[in-house]
Design a protein around this nucleic acid. Structure first.
Lengths: 214, 214
DNA sequence: GCATATTTGTCCGTATGTATA
DNA sequence: CTATACATACGGACAAATATG
């Protein structure tokens, strides 16, 4: 058995949540879900802990677990952390191993190809890979997993975005600009550009969330 | 019941680990510990998950849970993340609320008082509060909890330090210098000083770990 | 390499406590 | 206030993996 039962169950729930099958706010009942998935409540609780750790669900004492509802304050905070981690990556770019720098360029290329195909879902995925690669320039496993968790959380907010194209399209060329600044060794300009980039993206998401809420 | 049983049990184990009663590498047997603490295996496993989340213990499939053994590579990585988070705090200092800036100054004062009393244990605690306050300048809850977890992990390595005084004493005045640079608005010099500061501290810990290992 | 003992992984049934309608 | 639904916690059981001799 390579993966524990709890890990497999957690993967199933993770997919359902990210696909929108379990929208934010839904309660995950131990009894009903356990019956549905054919596992015991103890094992299901084990799976819940894994998802709580990823912040995809929240646990309220004596109430149970619920699919995480992302508040505007959460989005603001996530972008603060992203700024810290991605800035650190940009500042480490000069001394980063070639393989890590190549990963940044590759993500830019993949986003451009997907944009040419009109596959905006894939553009979004490539965009996330680009930013993960930026943070990855630090060469720190802990930063890598922190970024993964942050981006997974952020995906919960993407459900509020009405048009993936309008959101992702402008960032394809901005990613390329950023990558070129890094390749050219202009780290300070790159860091400044990254900051305004993240501010713009955050504003777009917050506007969309207010739109949906109203 | 304000806290769940699992949370109380986790707190007990956390204290034992940080106090050295359960040194790194010790296996936490489900049967023995459960009997010792008077709780069922299921509840104990729940407590384990909380500690796993904090990285104080590690879980090996079909083997059980063990008190975390910090490798030199972990220390290196922890300092990379600290650098990212504390640097972000220093860069946010200019626009940070007065209360957060005051917390930095207070930690400096507490460290100085403890040093005057010769209480090097307390100097260490104040030092950690100082760095938590630095990262806290970002005003980000997620950064705060990330710092808390990093410093808790790092405490596992402090057991290797032979002389708390020799380790902490030099940093008391360096903390004050850093705080004064921040108050004077010299953020770039502060960031540079922080970087060398963290490099020095990391080197001291790594040397001590190699000493103990040999 | 094998057989055995130990420990974890998973499941069940039940009793109790807690929040909500 | 009562009823209901649910989570919390327990103990026991067996299977599966691992360690030991």
């Amino acid at each position: 058995m390579a993966l524990s039962t709890a890990q497999r169950v957690a993967a199933v729930l993770r997919d359902r949540i990210e696909a929108g099958g379990l929208p934010p706010g839904t309660q995950l009942s131990e009894e009903a879900l356990g019956r549905d998935l054919g596992i015991s409540r103890n094992t299901l609780r084990e799976a819940f802990r894994l998802l709580i750790h990823e912040s995809l669900v929240v646990h309220r004492l004596n109430r149970g677990v619920f699919v995480r509802v992302l508040e505007p304050a959460d989005v603001v905070d996530i972008y603060r952390v992203r700024s810290a981690l991605e800035s650190a990556g940009v500042r480490a770019a000069a001394t980063a191993p070639p393989a890590l720098r190549a990963a940044v360029r590759e993500a830019v290329g993949e986003a451009a190809r997907a944009a040419a195909d009109g596959d905006w879902q894939e553009v979004g995925s490539a965009d996330l890979r680009f930013h993960r690669a930026l943070a990855g320039l630090s060469g720190s496993p802990r930063i890598d997993t922190a970024m993964d968790r942050l981006l997974a959380e952020l995906r919960l907010a993407f459900h509020a975005m009405p048009s993936p194209r309008r959101f992702h399209e402008p960032f394809v060329s901005r990613n390329r600009v950023l990558a070129e600044l890094l390749d050219g060794g202009e780290h300070e300009r790159a860091e400044a550009e990254l900051t305004t980039y993240l501010d713009d993206a955050r504003t777009l998401i917050l506007d969309a969330m207010r739109e949906v809420a109203s």
